[in-house]
Design a protein around this nucleic acid. Sequence first.
DNA 1: TTCATAACTGTATATTTATTCTTTGCGAAC
DNA 2: GTTCGCAAAGAATAAATATACAGTTATGAA
Lengths: 160, 160
Amino acid sequence: MKVKNSRLDAIRLILSTQEIGSQEELLSELEKEGFKLTQATLSRDLHQLRVVKTVGVQGRYRYVLTRPHQYRHAGEQGEVRAVTTPQEVTGFLSIKFSGNIAVIHTKPSYASTLAYHIDNYDFPEIIGTIAGDDTVMMIIAENVTRAAVLRVLRTIIPNI
Amino acid sequence: MKVKNSRLDAIRLILSTQEIGSQEELLSELEKEGFKLTQATLSRDLHQLRVVKTVGVQGRYRYVLTRPHQYRHAGEQGEVRAVTTPQEVTGFLSIKFSGNIAVIHTKPSYASTLAYHIDNYDFPEIIGTIAGDDTVMMIIAENVTRAAVLRVLRTIIPNI
DNA sequence: TTCATAACTGTATATTTATTCTTTGCGAAC
DNA sequence: GTTCGCAAAGAATAAATATACAGTTATGAA
């Protein structure tokens, strides 16, 4: 059970940071991380995580997480997890505000990746995100200006 | 191609109203509508529509529409095509407001379809939606009344 | 018109993914 | 310790899906 849980974490991490187009591809990434399993097990893992195979902008297939918010709750009792290396996140299209909520639109299939990175930085200005396929909703902390939100997001999305 | 376009429309209609778990299943539905095609063509259609195979709440697979972006751009040189045929969207149960957020409850598995239609109309009153299985969250633009939101939604959900 | 090109489709097949069946591992209760 | 119960995983295979190839049809330019 311990192995499986850390494997599920690894899958989430990989899918959030790389463009994976098939289970075989994901399998070899997992092997690099030291996990040993078969495609059958991986298929079951993906089913459990409710990962879906979407079609990206260039028509390429891509496995994406459908529920990035679960990731946060997955790590139990203050487990320290490596934050991903700062990197430019592509796919950003626009951001709009209404009240204490920001709505980001992305290219298709990029929303969960973007939300993952925003979550990962754990900006105090942003208390939570939720992602669909091409939309990320962010709840902004109280007494935080929109300019401040844009400023912190700029570390992830330079051209925001 | 005239045939292909109406077939794509039919696919979107079917996926919006039924739970389809495989291409073969969708194929037979299309045959009932008078379309004659093979699984190969259907696979290509689904790819073009960016339809994805998701995992539903009971663990069953289901094909669902994602976002219409590519479809929109697919129309050549200013061709006017109905975004979606105005149609009643089923599954609606209730709508509640809190601040600039509206929460719509639907019958199980209908949320993404409803959100899809709302997005499709691109109402300026609604800056974004996110759907789970039976819940849609909508962010309402500032200085827009709830009555105005209900009014525009009525084009999709008559009995709202 | 005629030619060139692009779009569309079916057939056959390759590829990919899900599942059945079986075995293994692991913890709890005895 | 042993046995029971059950989650987990592999091997093999079924099922489902994507695609290479070829043929056809539409589209557009000259």
